[in-house]
Design a protein around this nucleic acid. Structure first.
Lengths: 200, 200
DNA sequence: GTCTATATAAGGATAGAC
DNA sequence: GTCTATCCTTATATAGAC
């Protein structure tokens, strides 16, 4: 246990991440964040001026820590199928560590007064993936399909169990440990699916 | 334009559905619901006593109108692959008419104080699908895989584009009309995917 | 920088008239 | 059944002392 002394700003940010991600923007209370950070509300405003500003910092923080890895994978100089393999493995392992980020992000981009936040997302992922797909299609290494539809499917397959985790746990009568195990097994299962879909 | 005179209770319920589904529980205001229903707040409480009770009615209403159709498809006396075909087509067309239900439901079941609502979900879908899968597996009509993992994948593929619609629209630089067209095309694309996965 | 105290506003819920 | 007026609690935000 390394005990690092955090600055007040870092303590606040850490607490804010936890509360906002768990309770959503509307469900979050500045008081809860202050309590968790071990300070009082006034100090929150001293550091971040408003709930909106604090939320934006939290969103930036999480999005920047979560998505860039996915973007990098697609930029590598390997075949499309290999990229997809890395994507599945990287994404699911990242989700196991951050299971609530997807719902947090989806809520934010679907919120009327948070539309500006969409541009903070890595919007080039789709373009990059499409380019990579067509390169391999030319070389006849891959089946012909619609790459956008395929990428939406891939993301959906990876992220859905985490979004619907409470329903899945109940449906399977499973524990958290079993869920984690299922998600690790899921990596190979999904790799199998995409091979069946992509191999010509 | 058929102009049906709604009872006050129905007007309230209709307004409540719109507001709760759009803004979520925490983001919704009783005032907004009253305004939309064309009445005042006091009358809301006269009919439904509290925000919690009104919300529960809305959830029941939407869940009961949304999911039973999916359950029925899986109960038909047809092959597993045919069921999946119907599932894809039925689910996506239902989502085109109710694009915001999934996020609404996922938020509810992921909310700490709404855990009881999980039991309102059609939890037998997974069991039914698994049974149907193994029947066809025995007849060697289908590839061997994990049916739970497959069902999670199927649902994820269907629902993800709707959850992430704002991001998809921006990524593809698409309009609402284009999105709808894509989702209709998606029905056949997904049928193709599941055939590649399931056919032995 | 950090605190206590408080201003100000919003939101859920109720009382009571009609 | 429906309304106006109001209560009560909670939330964000700020003032001012230390």
């Amino acid at each position: 246990m390394t005990k690092i002394e955090l600055s007040t700003e870092e303590k606040i940010l850490q607490a804010a991440v936890e509360v906002f991600v768990r309770d959503g923007y509307d469900g979050s209370r500045m008081q809860d964040i202050a309590d968790l950070a071990g300070i009082n509300k006034a100090l929150l405003h001293y550091y971040f001026r408003s709930k909106d500003k604090l939320f934006e910092r939290v969103f930036d923080e999480k999005v920047q820590s979560f998505f860039p890895q996915m973007s990098e994978i697609l930029a590598q100089e390997i075949s499309f199928i290999e990229k997809i393999d890395f994507f599945i493995e990287g994404y699911i392992k990242l989700l196991l560590k951050n299971p609530f980020i997807p719902l947090f992000v989806l809520n934010t981009v679907n919120k009327k007064d948070k539309q500006d936040f969409i541009q903070k997302m890595p919007l080039d992922i789709m373009r990059k993936a499409t380019e990579s797909y067509y390169q391999d299609l030319q070389k006849l290494q891959i089946r012909e399909l619609n790459p956008m539809q395929f990428m939406m499917s891939l993301m959906g397959m990876c992220v859905f169990p985490f979004l619907a985790k409470p329903i899945m746990l109940r449906s399977f009568n499973a524990t958290n440990e079993m869920f984690e195990y299922m998600m690790l097994a899921r990596i190979d299962e999904l790799k199998k699916y995409v091979r069946l879909i992509l191999n010509p």
